[in-house]
């Protein structure tokens, strides 16, 4: 196993209102078995030992499911593989590589520090209608409504969204259409979601627009970047749902 030497150019920004810049670090002894975040851990341990502030980045489960981590690596959200940054391994890189690491860039995701951005806009979009109103205790027996497997599979495919924000980061317009669509399609596909189908779609789209995300120009970068493979067709479906909701008033 040969260890690699890398040149890292990382966006450093001390705070939300501070200016930032790409800062260069040389890092030696990087194992191909390391995850990308473990590589950053190694850098941070060195910086800490030298009394310098480590690079701040969001991370938690490190299993690709919590959606905390996210950074643009050499221009790609989550880097060159179709997975999250925490599941990206250094074997995807070679000795001597120069790696540019930047935060998600979007007007609706302001930078908090270094690679950490504020994604609370996503929570507000969900709060606008990304739920089925079913107060605890009110549920009927689970088998009261059969759900056709096709609908269940469509719902699941869209429910896989981890809310990491890679779609917004990758979109040249900083659009949150794929994120919003994933939830709209998930819930609208199910019979349980039918009563709120129109209001959900209307309210979530309105919330998405109000947060300052851009519009969709059907570029498709979002779906390419999505670590969970939410398809671009979810946006098509949401468009259909939206026009349907407006027709129904």
């Amino acid at each position: 196993m040969t260890l690699m030497k890398l040149t890292l150019r990382i966006w450093r920004q001390a705070g939300p209102d501070e200016p930032g810049a790409m800062t260069t670090y040389e890092l030696d002894g990087v194992s191909p078995e390391m995850s990308f975040l473990e590589m950053l851990d190694t850098l941070n341990e060195r910086l800490s030992a030298e009394g310098e502030e480590p690079v701040a980045f969001d991370h938690d489960c490190r299993e690709g499911i919590c959606g905390s981590c996210g950074m643009v690596i050499n221009g790609d959200a989550h880097g060159p593989e179709r997975t999250t940054a925490c599941q990206l391994h250094m074997r995807s890189f070679s000795d001597g590589d120069v790696i540019d690491i930047e935060p998600w860039r979007a007007g609706a995701f302001p930078v908090i520090k270094d690679l950490v951005v504020d994604r609370s806009a996503f929570d507000r979009i969900i709060g606008a209608g990304g739920y089925i109103t079913a107060p605890t205790g009110s549920a009927p027996e689970a088998h009261a409504t059969a759900v056709p497997k096709e609908a269940a599979d469509l719902a699941f495919e869209n429910a896989e969204c981890i809310g990491c924000g890679a779609c917004v980061a990758a979109c040249p317009n900083g659009s949150a259409m794929l994120f919003t669509a994933a939830k709209v399609v998930h819930l609208n596909a199910l019979p349980q979601g039918a009563p709120e189908r129109e209001s959900r779609t209307r309210e979530m789209v309105a919330a998405m627009d109000a947060e300052g995300f851009g519009g969709c120009t059907n570029v498709g970068e979002c779906a390419t970047a999505c670590p969970k493979g939410i398809p671009l067709f979810s946006i098509t479906r949401m468009n259909r749902e939206y026009l349907r909701a407006l027709r129904k008033g």
Binding site: V72, G75, D100, E102, N173, G174, S175, G214, G215, E221
Partner: peptide, 18 residues
């Protein structure tokens, strides 16, 4: 205009998209 405002800062590492 909306789209441009939604991405006020460009990536340092540019890439051909789409």
């Amino acid at each position: 205009r909306l789209d441009i405002r939604a991405r006020p800062v460009k990536y340092a590492h540019g890439r051909r998209r789409a």
